[in-house]
Design a binder for these strands. Sequence first.
DNA 1: CCCATATGAATGAAGG
DNA 2: CCTTCATTCATATGGG
Lengths: 206, 206
Amino acid sequence: MDEYTASGYCIRASRGGGCGGGGTGTKCGRWNPTSEQVKVLTELFRSGLRTPSTDQIQKISSQLSFYGKIESKNVFYWFQNHKARERQKRRRVLVDDGNDIMHLHHTNNLVSSTKRFDLIVIFILPMLTDFGDEKNQVSETDHEQRVIETLQLFPLNSLNDADSEKLRLFSSDHNNCKENNASFTYNIIGTTEMDHPTLDLRLSFV
Amino acid sequence: MDEYTASGYCIRASRGGGCGGGGTGTKCGRWNPTSEQVKVLTELFRSGLRTPSTDQIQKISSQLSFYGKIESKNVFYWFQNHKARERQKRRRVLVDDGNDIMHLHHTNNLVSSTKRFDLIVIFILPMLTDFGDEKNQVSETDHEQRVIETLQLFPLNSLNDADSEKLRLFSSDHNNCKENNASFTYNIIGTTEMDHPTLDLRLSFV
DNA sequence: CCCATATGAATGAAGG
DNA sequence: CCTTCATTCATATGGG
């Protein structure tokens, strides 16, 4: 397969074997930093260095070459990646923090009192399509054969009784108002209050 | 991150014991998706989503957090891996083809050969929210109240034209049939046939 | 137990 | 600086 070992990098060894020590030169085209190198880089990063200049990169690189093969670009990339990933991580954690309560609500006791969905509508049209299904292999999640799954995505049980009532009413109204010969079924679950601008499901969802 | 570096390996607690075995909540370091989570992710993937944007990731993540612990990065990695492995598999198959016999027409079966869901619309309108909508940060106190307005939308791209029509009709009927002074709004999403990875959470919503 | 495979996580390297 | 891809490491899981 790939045989491009431009500059015999790699110092890898297989599982359990030390990295630098024993041979087994698996050739890999990419730099595989030794732990010492990483340690130093990390230290530099921690001390504040983020975007080293070319000069700095050179120096660092040559310093680190003491511990193993390394090129300037490796250092360059290392900082770039490290910086970017740190930022990303931070960003995510921040957001995730907010989501936690969702999880809590769920795990603790089923959804409960604090839910605030005003309206949830779920439509599931029955399949009037015949499944050509010739795919050699369908996804693992398939043991469900063609059933109109209800993909229980969200908790609907947050409605209070009053709301539920309304909903029910509305629902039947809805059902009657039109000849139901339509080939689909639907449900509407809803509550009051919703005058806010049509939701924009796109990006900016809170 | 981790203590062990690139070339290092983590030999944390030998086999077996590690994570404690009680119950379902493995508290190990590694995310263990629930079947619902996987199901949803798979469905998204199958409907064409490949590389969700940061926003989408967050949304998805927060949606899925309802089913259990999950972080944005998990979603990120999930898609990354899933995509990569599909590619990898494909590549391998191609190679095999080359070695083996010749292939017939290249199997260009796009994603959606079999759809389970024809249409699912889920609306969750936020209630007492004041959409501060600050991109930056929200005070944690706010979090508690806001997170809930998470809305959900799942891409369903399997409607055939006929269905879309019916749906549309139904939609308008619905609107007329009743005086809409009701205090709720609704929308119907009809996605029309798009047989390949173009679909993402954004479009399909109208 | 050991092994094979699936898949979560990480990260070097690029491309834009 | 951002995002994406390829590869690799590590762990979870099921079968023998």
